[in-house]
Amino acid sequence: MTGHPRPEPAIWRPQGRFVANIASLRQLQVFNDRGGIAVNFDTMRSVSPNIAIAGSQSETLSLWETRSSSGFVTKPKFDARLITIRFVSSGHIVYRRRSGNIDGLPTHATLVDFDDLREVHASNAFSAISGTFAVDTLMAANEALTGGDDRGLPLLAPLAEVATPGMKALFLSLQQVQRRIQGIDRHDDLIFPLAREVLTYQLLSAWPRRIASPRSGTRDVPSRSLRAALDYIEANLSNALVLADVAAAAGISVRSLQDKFRREIGLTPVQFIIDRRLAKAHLDLMSSAKSTLSIADIARSWGFVHMGDFGQRYRRLYGRAPKETRQGSRHSA
């Protein structure tokens, strides 16, 4: 892979098309040993694997679609200078990174540096389309896109709201290119190099930017204040929260708080609070210790008093109804 020694073919190899339907632990082990992709798969608890993957990969661009009713865990096999973007259509995914965790949701696409990644947890009833780009490829595209004014890689945010026009267009392009490369010989496809180039330009143009890192010798005030706000929210999720209190805990104004959340996380503070409370409710619904509580009791404990609203928000985030999550957790217990 670009920037690192190339792995052995059993660990990673270019593939014009790869397809895997994994329905047993034996098939999972064989795929990990021989599949030739950049991560190892595992399952959570005693769940039997049910994972379907179809895609194509090269040293400059890999595209694939994943579907799993069981959920899964992946860990990188090696270090590589790669950037992975993912659009989740159902369920959710958690990236455990050295620089901090982020959640991928149907409402927000993710962008992760492969070298920063520790492991990935995908929920049950999960589906997504993903793309991995070589950092060198993106840097060259950025230089061409800006006419040589910018020779590095922009500081891209880890999360991007998918409802914006640019992100919608990026998703459709990713989907179309992923479908096009299935079952064809790239060497005979004169359109693929152009489609790949346009895809990199769309990514660089549509994806939101992070706040630039402070210069050496300066204090990381934006990150520190945002972390204080996140810590305050996490400690008070089960209590009434107002933005003025969150901003005061972070030592900034409400306007600065809103701006930091939009620019650094890709969510408004209110959206973030709601999503975190939904995540807590999701964990309670799967917990055997909370199995005697009704779904309404769990929802109310995290501030959701209107069950219709709770059900709609939960389904948008996790791709299934709260009742289905509870039933699934009982079956896997």
Rank of each mutant, 00 (worst) to 15 (best):
T2I: 05
T2C: 00
H4T: 15
P5M: 10
P9Q: 06
P9E: 09
I11M: 14
R13L: 10
A20I: 00
I22C: 06
S24C: 09
L25I: 01
Q27W: 01
Q29W: 08
F31R: 06
F31M: 09
D33W: 02
G36V: 11
N40A: 11
D42N: 14
T43S: 13
T43I: 13
R45K: 07
V47N: 05
P49R: 04
A54F: 06
A54Y: 07
S58K: 00
L63I: 09
R67L: 11
V73M: 09
V73W: 01
P76S: 05
F78C: 02
D79C: 06
D79A: 12
R86K: 12
S89R: 09
G91S: 04
H92N: 09
R98E: 08
P106Q: 12
A109W: 04
A109H: 04
V112M: 05
V112D: 10
D115Y: 05
D116Y: 10
D116A: 07
A122K: 08
N124K: 10
A125M: 10
S127L: 04
A128D: 13
G131R: 00
T132P: 00
T137W: 05
A140G: 13
N142P: 03
N142R: 11
E143A: 10
R151N: 04
P154M: 01
P154I: 02
P154K: 01
P158N: 15
P158Q: 13
V162D: 05
P165M: 09
M167I: 15
L170V: 11
F171Y: 12
L172Y: 15
L172T: 14
S173R: 14
L174W: 06
Q175V: 00
V177Y: 07
Q178D: 04
I181S: 10
I184G: 08
F192Y: 15
A195T: 01
R196W: 01
T200N: 04
A212L: 12
P214I: 14
R215F: 10
D220K: 11
R227I: 05
L230D: 11
Y232N: 03
N236Q: 06
N236R: 12
L237H: 08
L237T: 00
A240C: 01
L241I: 15
V242Y: 07
A247W: 04
A248N: 06
A249T: 08
I252M: 08
S253K: 04
Q258Y: 03
R262W: 03
P269R: 07
Q271D: 15
R277L: 03
A281G: 14
H282Y: 12
S287C: 01
I295D: 10
I295G: 06
R300L: 10
H306L: 11
M307P: 02
M307H: 06
Q312G: 11
R315E: 15
G319I: 02
E324L: 08
R330T: 04
H331V: 06
H331R: 13
